[in-house]
């Protein structure tokens, strides 16, 4: 019964990813709104979606551009946000050992939390193929790019006035990503530490480097909290790395 036709695998991956693709589109629209508010042009907004192709990173990058952060600090911040991709890559690589390096490199570029989740669960019951992962990634890539452009134009219509109110869109969007990540006391410790360090740091640390300082200090605080709490239970939660939105 398990016939793996090359073309249908690609299409299957694409179709299976539609539900998660649509939910990623909502993030895409919000990204587009934030990019427009940060002063990016439509082409810059689309170029970022096509080249960076990572949700939380892009929203962080445009917010840092709006704050006037240095390019170097933006790139470093994006890098550390994306470190969790190592987890996704390590977890799915064993299924793709038979694929060509080109296919692996392409799949790596298109890998998101969403396509990873759909593909990983597919591989548990069906023969793993690079084409399925590719179809899944292409789905997210197209919907992500389009929804960013839609958000950009939508944001231009609504946000020309009442800027104090619509500035809050960024806070609300980040709370929408952040709150579902708080799944235990250690994460809460990390969040509170980051809040305190970033508030103090934004006053006493030059430039926008407080973002990176707060991220590192708070991650260590969360880690220490989870070690103190005792390990066995929380380690299970951290496997797989699908818990944060991309």
């Amino acid at each position: 019964m398990k016939k793996s036709n090359v073309k249908s695998e690609l299409l299957k991956g694409f179709i299976d990813t539609i539900p998660l693709g649509l939910s990623a589109s909502i993030y895409g629209v919000v990204y587009g709104v934030l990019a427009g508010k940060a002063g990016l042009s439509i082409w810059e907004t689309i170029a970022m979606s096509c080249i960076v192709f990572a949700g939380a990173s892009q929203m962080t990058a445009v917010q840092m551009i709006a704050l006037g952060s240095s390019g170097v600090s933006i790139i470093i911040t994006v890098f550390i946000i994306n470190l969790r991709h190592f987890l996704l890559g390590a977890s799915i690589a064993p299924y793709l050992r038979h694929e060509s390096t080109g296919m692996k490199l392409l799949n790596a570029f298109l890998m998101t939390d969403e396509s990873y989740a759909v593909t990983y669960s597919h591989y548990q019951s069906d023969p793993p193929t690079g084409k399925y992962f590719l179809g899944s990634g292409i789905n997210i890539y197209i919907l992500w790019g389009l929804s960013g452009a839609v958000g950009y134009f939508f944001g231009n219509i609504i946000s020309s006035q009442l800027s104090y109110i619509f500035d809050f869109a960024f806070v609300a969007a980040f709370l929408g990503m952040l709150v579902p990540m708080i799944k235990g006391l250690p994460v809460l410790v990390a969040v509170l530490t980051s809040a305190i360090v970033s508030l103090l740091g934004s006053r006493f640390i030059p430039g926008k480097w407080y973002i990176i300082v707060a991220a590192i200090v708070a991650s260590l605080a969360g880690y220490i909290a989870s070690e103190l709490k005792g390990s066995s239970k929380s380690e299970v939660n951290n496997r797989g790395g699908v818990q944060c939105e991309d």
Partner: peptide, 16 residues
């Protein structure tokens, strides 16, 4: 485990 705290930490440092 350490990496799992990075995303919430960065997001918080931007909104706080």
């Amino acid at each position: 485990k350490l990496m799992s705290f990075i995303a919430p930490a960065v997001l918080t440092s931007l909104i706080a």
